[in-house]
């Protein structure tokens, strides 16, 4: 038996061993759990993590191969075959409308075998700009034919209005209306355009207060995006 009284043992040492990875598996599990509940012990761990991480300064950076980034991104953002629910989650800015519709779609999916062509698509667009801050999410609700809009970032310029346009291939932009100052808005899609909604590109322009005086856009395009099927 070694001389136990000489054997250094306290919370600070346990914290250091945890950070160094010297703790046994059991101690490690217990230590991690304790950190989540015991701020004093957690402070010891943070002390050691912060101090010992300085050792990494002696490690030279090594550029990883480019394919690693692609592989990692493919894992974090699976591009294809994203479930409807995940997509709905991505569009959480309009979550209520989208979730309601997901429920509706669920009902539709149940009947899909008998009516394969009756499944309506949820259309959504993310209106953004490379140069400005304005970001707006839009979802077209197929039952009410309303566009539910949520402004995520940016706003109208001082004493100016934001106007929403639907653009169809080869046609002049069609005004859908002036957006209110609020973050959310609902705008009815004119009946004549409803069947072509999937081809829309939505755009928001900077216009004089109250909207374009000419019927066509007159100001800068502040954000735009094509409709995609959610």
């Amino acid at each position: 038996m070694t001389d136990q009284t000489e054997f250094p043992d306290n919370d600070d040492i346990h914290a250091a061993e945890l950070v160094l990875g010297l703790a046994s598996d059991d101690d490690r599990t217990a230590g991690r759990r304790r950190m989540a509940t015991d701020p004093t012990f957690a402070a010891h761990v943070v002390f050691w993590q912060e101090r010992l991480a300085a050792m990494a300064d002696s490690i030279d950076p090594v550029a990883p191969p480019a394919r690693l980034k692609q592989r990692m991104l493919a894992q974090v953002f699976p591009a294809k075959r994203v479930s409807i629910l995940e997509r709905v989650w991505l569009w959480q800015g309009i979550s209520v409308a989208a979730l309601l519709f997901a429920g509706y779609l669920g009902v539709q999916l149940l009947t899909i075998n008998t009516q394969p062509n009756q499944q309506p698509a949820v259309l959504a667009a993310q209106l953004v700009s490379d140069t400005g801050p304005l970001q707006v999410l839009a979802v077209i609700e197929p039952v009410s034919h309303e566009i539910a809009l949520r402004r995520i970032a940016g706003e109208a310029r001082a004493d100016r209005s934001l106007e929403l346009w639907a653009i169809l291939p080869g046609q002049a932009p069609i005004s859908l209306g002036v957006l209110p100052d609020s973050e959310t808005a609902r705008i009815l899609v004119p009946a004549a355009l409803r069947s072509q909604a999937a081809q829309f590109t939505l755009a928001i322009t900077d216009e004089p207060l109250g909207g374009s005086p000419t019927g066509g856009p007159t100001g800068d395009v502040l954000a735009a995006g094509p409709m995609t099927t959610l």
Binding site: L18, V19, R32, M35, A36, P39, T40, A42, A43, V45
Partner: peptide
Amino acid sequence: FELVAPGPN
């Protein structure tokens, strides 16, 4: 990694 309780430090 160890998740730390929000601490006073």
